Amino acid sequence: MAESHEGAATSTTGPDVPVAFEDPGYREAVVDLLGVIAYAEISAFERLAEDAKLAPTLADKVALAAMATAEFSKVAAIHDRVRTFGGDPFEAMTPFRLPVEQFHRHTAPADWLESLVKAYVGDGLANDFYREVAAYLDPGTRDLVVTSVEGGEHAAFVVDRVRAAIAADPRVGGRLALWGRRLMGEALIQAQRVAAERDALSALLAGGVDRPGLDLAALGRMFTRLTERHAERMALLGLDS
């Protein structure tokens, strides 16, 4: 779980109107964060719809199409939240097209099983990071982010298919374990690039007048949690992290 921050984003006029709303830097950071999440959802929709073509059965194709639809269904609420901060959702997404698309180019799955591992492990890692950042947001935005990155209903499907494939051919496990480690490495590289290029996001984690931030120790604990949750997902799939 993300670290608790009592009093973060304290309201002045209501439960969803924190002091931070008066801070242009905070508004910019939230618009950036929502922009990258929204574009990631759109990109996930496109990728999953494309990966459905690799499905070995009609049932698998329908399951992946359902995952794609679920991703796209979250976009409208994120766009609405961007507008409440005075931002344009399409302008908010634009800076993140290149890094998100670069990640997907560098991690294009070679087959059906790799696409499943990417959907479960790769997207899971990104979503874990967004949940961590959400701890530093106002209540309304925090709740939206947490809701937007939920996707546990699809986990059982992916775990079942990957474990069945490994049982049928144990050699598959080694290849997919390497693939999972590559996904994590590429995700961390892209996250670092985005943070380096978007000053507002970096400032968000540093805190503000009404929001405690991350010091080096807390940052280290956050990455430890991300690594541990990645290992847990890999273990559920029957893979070594």
Rank of each mutant, 00 (worst) to 15 (best):
E50G: 03
E50Y: 10
G7T: 03
A70M: 00
T107M: 02
V19P: 00
V133E: 06
S241T: 13
A110P: 07
R175M: 10
R225D: 02
R83I: 05
A8S: 07
F72A: 14
L204P: 12
S241N: 15
A2G: 05
D23V: 13
A77T: 08
S148K: 02
P95W: 01
L137A: 05
A49P: 02
F223I: 11
R105H: 02
L204R: 13
E28F: 09
D199Q: 15
K53N: 13
G14N: 12
R83N: 01
P109G: 13
G25Y: 12
E132N: 00
L178V: 10
D111S: 11
I42A: 04
A59M: 06
M234S: 13
H104S: 07
E6S: 14
V31P: 10
A165H: 02
A20S: 14
G35P: 10
L176M: 12
G122K: 11
A155S: 06
V172M: 07
S148E: 03
R198N: 14
L236W: 01
E28A: 15
R225M: 02
Y136T: 04
G208N: 08
G151D: 08
E46N: 14
R193S: 10
M1T: 09
A126R: 09
P15L: 15
G87E: 11
E6Y: 14
A70C: 00
A126Q: 08
